[in-house]
Design a protein around this nucleic acid. Structure first.
Lengths: 202, 202
DNA sequence: CATTTAATGTTAACATTGTCAACATATATT
DNA sequence: AATATATGTTGACAATGTTAACATTAAATG
């Protein structure tokens, strides 16, 4: 908000800006290539200022992950909860939004859904379970709705959700990691995948 | 084969042992934590001996990736080509072997099917296309067989293969990266997934 | 308001790691 | 046997995350 001409000794909002800038840097350059020195330099502070707000680089990244999940929730929740559209339409829109995010932000996608901080991440996700709209639980809700409408078979929705998530996640991962050399076929693959899923779930 | 008591100046087979030991280290400890110093120390050579055989650490890892693909081909080809079993049985066995490998060797799995060396990897895979049994092409072959038997719909088998691979890859990735907290349900999820795929592909 | 305390930021230094240059030694070639 | 090539070693360097000691500002307390 308020900007001093000569940068003051105390930054004022460093913790939040560290998280924000780190997220942007990871988004653009990837997790492996970002460095604390470049991050702090970009904010006009010294290298070790980070350690007044985070115990380590890993702790900072973990904060970025948390921020990323919140961001994604805000992006996906409206799609899940939009009852003006049918379950099937929402299902398809959800998958498309998920894929779009992965393709537009591959580095962030890997950060949130890759191998990083497996252990610590579970803590973040655990306390997020309260938020009903988040991630897997939103999908479970949608599938439960679909079961009630008789669109899909009445199977343990958690198992169904895992299967569906895995399919879309796998497609996103293979694409952004360059294992499917057919970017032109992408739309066809996605539409076919949704079709196979909806038919297979019946 | 032949061991001198006093280690000679020339190692004799260093390049191959570098690849083999690097592969074992990555398998056990993961790609990010291995270091050239520890690798060479384990082989009794000096840190920089690597550079007589590889241009860089990345080049070495790329060699490990290549070795890993060959290993996997040897593991999967018999399953694909075993005509004593039906297509459906082979399909299910293939997925299970794929998942088992990922779970037993998560670090190797990430190395081979993750984001690493996207660009360089395509070169490796390209010249491997000649080998008909490798990776995606083996799956395409199996799906083509299934189409001929009328088990699944006659759609572009490359699209089908991408969808199927994505599903199993996604399941493997979510599991080894700790995004599915239900290891007890794993068998159920896998069997259900194969069922959904076979039904959806019809 | 004055003083003390806590929070926040800086500088210097260190260990680790990948990499290169210069040198050493063994193997291959002629 | 002499030379050239391949292979291995040592020392050094830059980059990076991290810690310790110090500096400065904001907050708390009287």
């Amino acid at each position: 908000m308020k900007e001093k001409k000569t940068s003051p000794y105390h930054h004022g909002n460093l913790k939040e800006e560290l998280l924000q800038t780190a997220l942007e840097m990871i988004d653009k350059e990837g997790l492996d290539t970002i460095t604390l020195r470049e991050l702090t330099q970009r904010l006009g502070t010294s290298r070790t200022a980070v350690y007044r707000h985070f115990a380590s680089k890993e702790a900072l990244i973990l904060g970025v992950i948390e921020k990323g999940y919140e961001h994604l929730n805000l992006l996906f929740t409206p799609i899940f909860q939009d009852r003006t559209h049918s379950v099937a339409v929402r299902f398809e829109a959800m998958g498309r939004a998920y894929l779009d995010f992965a393709i537009e932000h591959p580095n962030l996608y890997r950060l949130l859904f890759g191998e990083n901080f497996r252990q610590e991440r579970e803590e973040i996700c655990d306390y997020k379970d309260e938020n009903q709209a988040t991630g897997l639980y939103a999908l479970i809700g949608l599938l439960t709705e679909a079961q009630e409408e008789g669109i899909i078979a009445q199977v343990n929705p958690m198992v169904q959700a895992a299967m569906v998530w895995a399919s879309i996640h796998g497609l996103a991962s293979l694409l952004i990691d360059g294992h499917l050399i057919m970017s032109d076929n992408m739309e066809a693959i996605y539409e076919y995948s949704i079709g196979v899923l909806l038919k297979g779930l019946q």
